[in-house]
Design a protein around this nucleic acid. Sequence first.
DNA 1: TGAACGTATGAGTTAATGTTCATATGTGTG
DNA 2: CACACATATGAACATTAACTCATACGTTCA
Lengths: 109, 109
Amino acid sequence: MKKYLCGDAHEAEKNIPDDNIASELADFLKIFADMTRIKILYALLDMELCVHDIATILNMEQSAISHQLRLLRQYKLVKVRKEGKSSYYSLNDSHIHEILIRGYEHISE
Amino acid sequence: MKKYLCGDAHEAEKNIPDDNIASELADFLKIFADMTRIKILYALLDMELCVHDIATILNMEQSAISHQLRLLRQYKLVKVRKEGKSSYYSLNDSHIHEILIRGYEHISE
DNA sequence: TGAACGTATGAGTTAATGTTCATATGTGTG
DNA sequence: CACACATATGAACATTAACTCATACGTTCA
């Protein structure tokens, strides 16, 4: 597996995560790397909201919000509670809450 | 600015970052949310590398690597040092180093 | 100075992602 | 039951982003 290298780069190779890990990490970060989803998550920071209200607050179509909420659900970032005609979304656990708070700190540096 | 809401969602509005902040945060996260860039960053974790070696190690075209390095440069995640024919890249500061270490911890949960 | 090597970059192609539109499903209400 | 409202979802469309290809630029060395 020897390859031609300018420097002693084999050392560096050890730190590179393999494809599975790297893409898993990339996918996880991708969910947060979208303005709409960021806004949704921060909207849910300390209260649950129904789809209609999220759409209203963000001034976006209900459909767009639903699509994004599906993604957030799939990645277990939010959970749903159905009551009557509405679906109420909230952050899935305090871990997500913590990540968002950290994000805020980081951006305000 | 009153809008129709099912619940008391105006509370939630306060937590939503405005467009500038949200897109800045999204853009920042987008850089990390890509497998190639993740690998590059981890390759640079504790040594500088020239473009050719990064391409070789990651088994990718030099051009693709250069394009990604340009992005990483623009966002100040890496810095360059030119020596002779080569450009040696390294992480820009220990802050980035710390973020990457955290990322590793997170993914191994 | 010309050839080889290392890197950067614009253009084109393709793949992935986000939004809209149309519509289906489900729930409450007159 | 018929209708309105809330949500979900597939398909079409638009945008973005990553890679390849071709090529230019800069450096070294014969």
